[in-house]
Design a protein around this nucleic acid. Structure first.
Lengths: 100, 100
DNA sequence: TGGATAGATTGAAGTTTGTCAATGTATTTA
DNA sequence: TAAATACATTGACAAACTTCAATCTATCCA
């Protein structure tokens, strides 16, 4: 599970509009209701997406497993930030279509 | 249907191992049982994937709708080739995470 | 013209996914 | 210590997806 995500797994994680929106929100990183300067907490995403808390948690796990975000627990909160690992896997997979 | 594919649609099309394998096969473009020099025909993919003919056809439609391949009918055959449109949509979506 | 071939479409079965309500766990604060 | 808060987990359900067998359509060839 914490092994290197496959390209298919990364693309699958990216293949949902809600998750893409969450990812963009985390990338902007401009709102945090809990603690600032350390990333976005789940409650920010819950409020911005309008989804239920378990659904947000579910999506964040998928993004995290795909290496697209990092999750850091700080006290009562978990802060999420972009992780380049997944993006690199995706970009490499696309590039390799043209360099066999 | 022929409207611009959304990033989510492109990523979803890429999020299946069978389709990624087909895409790589089309990119290599080194085998064609039907006519040469014009791309890969569906029967090539059927043989290389081991999937049934309708399943191959289904996957190719998803890749085509996502702007990842082109489909050109020549006589009795349809030849498939890489299409940069979908890749561009995917790459741009990833890049824009870092340039808001 | 009739048979054969490439591929698309339809219909159905089994699996996966997205979602929420209910509940559990860890941490902070009163 | 008790209540509150942030998040994860479980269970359930509908929708979407993957796959195949059967059938249909279009094209080529004898």
């Amino acid at each position: 599970m914490s092994a290197d995500p496959t390209p298919a797994e990364v693309f699958r994680a990216l293949g949902d509009q809600q998750r893409l929106t969450m990812l963009a929100f985390i990338a902007r990183n401009d709102v945090s209701c809990c603690v600032t300067q350390h990333g976005v907490c789940a409650c920010d995403l819950q409020r911005s997406s309008g989804l239920s808390q378990p659904t947000v948690s579910h999506h964040l796990k998928i993004l995290s497993d795909a290496g697209l975000i990092t999750a850091t627990k700080r006290g009562r909160w978990v802060h999420y930030a972009l992780n380049r690992t997944g993006q690199g896997i995706a970009r490499t997979a696309l590039e390799q279509l043209h360099t066999p």
